[in-house]
């Protein structure tokens, strides 16, 4: 029979225990017995999941080991991790695709767009959170509808807009344009967070003679930091990884293009050399992985927030 009651409470449980002691203890079973009662089906479930994990891991494993191999070793011993270690691929990736410049361009565009997004979204969310009238609800609905707009459909008109603004083939247009696609979700999430700010805090700040800007800066912003972080991570990922608009608007100029646009040029330059390309992929992944490593606990809620689109 399965053990439904774990006798000893592990530290992890104890932390959550006060909320619902019985419920938590019941659910956590012995490790490895998670599919307890399912009988032979459980082996099928385990096998299926691990097969998927293997299929998921295989290309990533191949990517990582290839980046540190010489080209001949990639062909002769494609799956062995024990071939002579080389870092030449990374140097070649940097020089062939001017990845250094491209990474700096990506940082410029990403941080610029992030800044513009927050500058636009924070005051808007503040106003929406404080407003209780019909107009406020209408504005909120406009942003909610924004989720339904797939930006890619408007690729060509957006290029045209950049031409008419005199910003075609510049990174600055992307800094202005990308926030627009991020605004709906950012504004909605921030508004929800700011609504949760207790009115008493604002009242006492007002009594102390603080103006609306001061209230925003010293009451609302500090209290919405958790949501701000989630939103910032989400936007960082989508700005850093943006490909199509960077490709058609900034263009192929090596001095201006972003990392995501520079990366594929490595595959054309090295038709039969996966090592250099693999090194390039890893280089462009580093910033995203750093964000993941630093904010690992926030990442899941960021992805979940991303799913609220719709």
């Amino acid at each position: 029979m399965t053990t439904t009651v774990a006798p000893e409470a592990r530290p992890a449980e104890r932390r959550t225990a006060p909320a619902a002691p019985t419920a938590v203890r019941r659910r956590r079973r012995r490790r490895g017995d998670a599919l307890g009662r399912t009988g032979p089906m459980k082996y099928l479930a385990h096998a299926g999941v691990w097969l998927y994990v293997l299929l998921l891991a295989a290309p990533l494993y191949y990517l990582v080991i290839s980046a540190f191999k010489r080209n001949t070793d990639i062909f002769n011993q494609p799956f062995s991790p024990f071939t002579p270690l080389t870092f030449d691929n990374f140097g070649l990736a940097f020089s062939q695709a001017s990845l250094g410049t491209a990474m700096l361009n990506s940082v410029y565009v990403t941080l610029g767009a992030e800044l513009v997004t927050l500058l636009l979204a924070i005051p808007a969310s503040y106003a929406l959170a404080r407003s209780k009238g019909a107009v406020g609800r209408m504005v909120e609905r406009v942003f909610a509808l924004g989720f339904l707009i797939p930006g890619f459909a408007a690729l060509v008109p957006t290029v045209l807009l950049s031409i008419s603004l005199g910003l075609f083939h510049t990174r600055e247009f992307l800094i202005l344009f990308l926030p627009a696609s991020a605004l709906p979700l950012t504004v909605i999430l921030l508004t929800q967070a700011m609504r949760a700010v207790p009115a008493e805090l604002e009242e006492s700040a007002l009594l102390d003679g603080a103006g609306p800007l001061r209230v925003l800066w010293s009451v609302y912003v500090p209290l919405s930091v958790p949501t701000l972080t989630v939103v910032a991570i989400l936007n960082f990922l989508s700005f850093w990884n943006e490909y199509f608009f960077s490709l058609v608007i900034i263009g192929p100029d090596a001095a201006l293009r972003t990392a995501q646009v520079a990366l594929p040029t490595l595959s054309i330059a090295n038709a039969a050399q996966y090592g250099v390309l693999a090194a390039g992929i890893i280089i462009t992944l580093v910033p995203a992985y750093l964000v993941y490593a630093v904010f690992a606990d926030k990442m899941e809620s960021a992805v979940l927030a991303g799913a609220l689109k719709g």
């Binding site: 290309p59 990922l237 995501q260 646009v261 990366l263 594929p264 595959s267 693999a278 992929i281």
Partner: peptide, 13 residues
């Protein structure tokens, strides 16, 4: 974490 272009490049290999 993979961008569209990184995803495609992984599968080029």
């Amino acid at each position: 974490l993979l961008s569209a272009s990184a995803l495609a490049m992984v599968f080029v290999g």
